[in-house]
Write a protein that binds this DNA or RNA. Structure first.
Lengths: 137, 137
DNA sequence: CTTAATGCAAACCGTTTGCATAGAT
DNA sequence: ATCTATGCAAACGGTTTGCATTAAG
């Protein structure tokens, strides 16, 4: 039984074709941030069928189950990535669209101090740096 | 001549009814972050007419002219605010939607160091803390 | 066998656009 | 008078949804 199958069971989700396909594909693309359409296209190219609507449904379920994170960045399309790693933030290249991840304890800590100072109870945060990646400038 | 009128001229924009209305309304709401529809509704309520399409066009022009900043946050609707103040980041209440602004030099400085370390050329950044505001928890 | 998941196509929602008309300089 | 801005309604693009069908447990 594939890793995807047991992950689905652990998450309390029924093991179905589309769910396994999407999860497998996300695991094979751990270093990338994918849109629903990216995934749908990739599955079609590898001969597997899953409707776009189902890809969206599956991704939304995965997000609720905590398997996946959804990012919106600027622009209209959401991108998804597996959620099983540590928290990190993103640098998005405005030219090629590539996404670089980073972690920084100074910032992580600092934002909790800021929130506390405003009597604000943090549940999540987004930190995105926009600019040109190494390859694009 | 109102402040809005001279601001428009300075920005190289023709002084028209809808542009003055939108800019005046933004100035009267400096402490808030407004969606295109918020503005359109407000104008209608105060008896002024401007089509929603025009409000969008005007806001987009203002953004290009640097008069206004557009934020997307999470979710699909953009919000706008006047751009004539210092840079700041945002805390968004996930319950009531209120937006609190803050500035922090430690974070500002730190993110440039991080970018430099990855050979990334920063043009902009977004830092949003999500959670519950003082009033909501 | 029962209930939940899928595919399809249509609906949705914020936003943009083409085109004819009104308005600014 | 000229050329741009506006209003309207239709188009758009990503995402969601209703409903009949299919598959998982």
């Amino acid at each position: 039984m594939s890793g995807a199958q047991s992950e689905l069971k652990n998450a309390g989700l029924k093991v179905t074709g589309p769910r396994v396909l999407v999860l497998d594909y996300l695991e094979a693309s751990r270093d990338r941030h994918l849109s629903a359409e990216d995934i749908w296209t990739a599955l079609k190219e590898q001969g597997e069928e899953a409707s776009l609507a189902t890809v969206y449904r599956v991704l939304t379920q995965f997000e609720s189950a905590g398997l996946v994170h959804r990012h919106t960045f600027e622009g209209n399309t959401s991108v998804f990535e597996l959620a099983d790693e540590d928290h990190h933030d993103h640098m998005v290249c405005t030219k090629c669209g590539s996404v670089t991840e980073y972690v920084d304890d100074v910032i992580e800590k600092r934002q909790h101090e800021i929130a506390a100072a405003h009597n604000f109870q943090v549940s999540d945060h987004v930190h995105v740096i926009y600019g040109l990646c190494k390859a694009c400038h």
